[in-house]
Design a protein around this nucleic acid. Structure first.
Length: 566
RNA sequence: UGGGGUGUCGCCAAGCGGUAAGGCACGGGACUUUGACUCCCGCAUGCGUAGGUUCAAAUCCUGCCACCCCAGCCA
């Protein structure tokens, strides 16, 4: 039976603790502005690409934190840059979050819902003398920004009269100026060591067509101005984001402090997820797709949620993984093996066992009657007896795994070799008598003789049979295609300074086997379905399957402690 | 050479002044009709480093070192 996995967060409100929860606890206990508020978080993806497992971490943290505190978590599309966004992604994002098992209730929002309010807040800043319309070109702005050690130089428009900025900003909105001709900038601190505070741009002019507001606007707010307002409008108390926004927090707080917001959220940053042997940035994933190195965003080798789903990863396994890696501010890279462990753990408890021979070779039981056929009862899942049994047919000729026979065995090999006894799972014990080979020396048929006293795989005389192998009856077997996967990259850190990820695609990351023999019932499997192919791993049905022509993906192999000796 | 962060086992990660949890990986062993699962056992005299405070320091103080992020009209 499944063991007690230390993942309290997955089955209750108690949950694991992390530094974010410590901070929230303090916020609740210190009698400050959050003391009597409902903990409210949000997951704010920009709809410009597909979600990957890194987003799953943020999702689990955002929704999980709300759940832990009996609070709320909103889903919000952060759509403030129309040139990159599309509705196509909005739907995919919602589907992926639902698939993970999270629910935003009726709190689905768009940043673009607040464009009008943001515009008014911007006017407020201008009126307070805290923002001005700047006419510098992008190049001029870059040159005046200063360096790590030198302060920025002031924009010539920095001290423009309030009325003038107000007028210009209104005309920016009205479409009087060309894209890029002007910006609205905050007036903060040119000497700050933090670039974000050196009069950051708040609004830019862009005629890009917005996927929701169409052409209603030609000015769009920048993230730094928009995000705190979005959070404040939605009554978010704790705005959780990744480490690279730490430098933006002073600006986030500055906006909140100067606009008289509906509420005053607090930003807390955590380390984003890194996993070895893969890449985790939209830009790089996009390159893999666009250069044809993978077959789309949902290629089973991709770390996208769509790819993982197609690979056979279950929502439970992904959530368990995220909950168990913890949350901290240390830039870290988790072992891919840990993700695999979480999947195996989940599927071991859930997946029905079946026999499939992916590299078949014929086994002939010479002393078995030519025309006899028997039916054996095989348990569906030894971890879960209540799942019952299924009937599997058996006859004189079977398919067995070619790797389960060798003429000249290494030490400690206890599968088939001339003279050795092996158990055919749930059927009979057979003794290998030899093999036939073709002109190239390839084994074409393995021969054996069965012991009729061992029906069901039992040994009434009590003798120990070290090896048990899987098999499929040639008379009833169905043929299937099986796709085996390995790391997409052949180095652990494809995303590092040492490696260009595009030069390190693992040539063996996908292996297609087209003539696999499976239990007949598998040809009838319907999506979604995961099985354990005994001794081979966990496999799921792929959408490429056609009637009578099933395709299976190996989600993860079984652990294998067998090491060939000498 | 500015600002912001982070350093506890190969990889994650607890720890919040009282004498180093846990998981993954790895190595042994038991069990086994999956070389799977499960179960045992092992795995940091040590917490980036050097000092200091204290009866007591991974935890407090000081210096140093290393690594990550920041100069988009991206998010």
């Amino acid at each position: 039976m499944a063991k007690d996995t230390p993942t309290p967060a997955s089955n209750g409100e108690t949950g694991t603790k992390n530094f974010i929860h410590d901070l929230i606890d303090t916020d609740i206990a210190d009698g400050g502005r959050f003391a009597s508020m409902t903990v409210h978080t949000r997951f704010p993806p920009e709809p410009n690409g597909y979600l990957h497992i890194g987003h799953a971490k943020a999702i689990v943290i955002d929704f999980g934190t709300a759940e832990k505190y009996n609070g709320l978590c909103n889903l919000r599309m952060d759509d403030t840059n129309p040139s990159k966004e599309d509705v196509e992604y909005v739907d995919a994002i919602k589907r992926d979050i639902r698939w993970l098992g999270f629910d935003w209730g009726d709190r689905f929002f768009y940043a673009s819902d607040y464009f009008e309010q943001m515009y008014e807040f911007a006017r407020t800043l201008i009126q307070k003398g805290l923002a001005f319309v700047c006419e510098m070109t992008p190049e001029q702005m870059r040159e005046s920004r200063g360096t790590l050690t030198e302060p920025a130089t002031a924009s010539p428009w920095r001290d423009r009269p309030v009325a003038e900025s107000l007028d210009l900003f209104e005309r920016m909105k009205a479409g009087e100026f060309a894209d890029g001709a002007m910006t609205l900038r905050a007036r903060i601190d040119l000497n700050s060591g933090n670039f974000n505070m050196r009069d950051p741009v708040l609004y830019r002019i862009s005629r890009a067509h917005h996927h929701r507001t169409g052409d209603a606007w030609c000015i769009y707010p920048m993230y730094d101005f928009a995000h705190p307002i979005e959070d404040a409008i939605e009554n978010v108390t704790h705005s959780l984001c990744s480490l690279e926004f730490e430098d933006h927090r002073p600006l986030y707080d500055w906006v909140i402090a100067n606009i008289d917001p509906p509420s005053k959220p607090r930003q807390i940053e955590f380390a984003r997820l890194g996993i070895n042997h893969t890449v985790m940035s939209k830009r790089k994933l996009r390159q893999l797709v666009e250069t044809g190195r993978v077959n789309g965003w949902d290629d089973p080798r991709m770390p996208t949620l769509g790819g993982l789903r197609r690979r056979g990863y279950t929502p439970q396994s992904i959530r368990s993984f995220i909950e168990r890696i913890g949350v901290s501010k240390v830039v870290s890279t988790v072992d891919y093996a840990f993700l695999e462990h979480c999947l195996r753990e989940n599927l071991n408890a859930e997946a029905q066992r079946t026999m499939a021979v992916i590299r078949p070779v014929r086994l002939v039981i010479d002393n078995y009657p030519d025309d006899l056929s028997e039916i054996f009862e095989v348990e569906n899942n030894p971890e879960r007896p209540e799942d019952g049994t299924r009937e599997v047919s058996f006859s004189k000729e079977l398919w067995i795994e070619s790797t389960d026979f060798v003429e000249d065995p290494p030490r400690k090999y206890f599968r088939l070799f001339p003279g050795n006894e092996v158990r055919l799972k749930s059927a009979y014990v057979v003794r290998c008598t030899g093999c036939d080979k073709d002109d190239n020396g390839q084994v074409t048929t393995v021969h054996a003789e069965y012991d009729r006293e061992t029906r069901g795989g039992n040994t009434p005389d009590g003798r120990r049979i070290k090896g048990t192998i899987h098999w499929v009856d040639t008379r009833t077997a169905a043929t299937a295609e099986v796709r085996l996967y390995d790391n997409l990259f052949d180095v652990a850190d494809p995303d590092s300074a040492e490696h260009n990820f595009l030069d390190h695609i693992n040539p063996d990351s996908l292996q297609v086997l087209t003539d696999c023999k499976v239990e007949a019932a598998l040809a009838q499997a319907e999506l979604p379905a995961s099985f354990q192919f005994m001794r081979l791993g966990y496999f799921c049905l792929d959408p490429d399957s056609r009637p009578g022509k099933p395709v299976f993906n190996r989600s993860v192999s079984l652990k294998d402690s067998y090491k060939p000796k000498q």
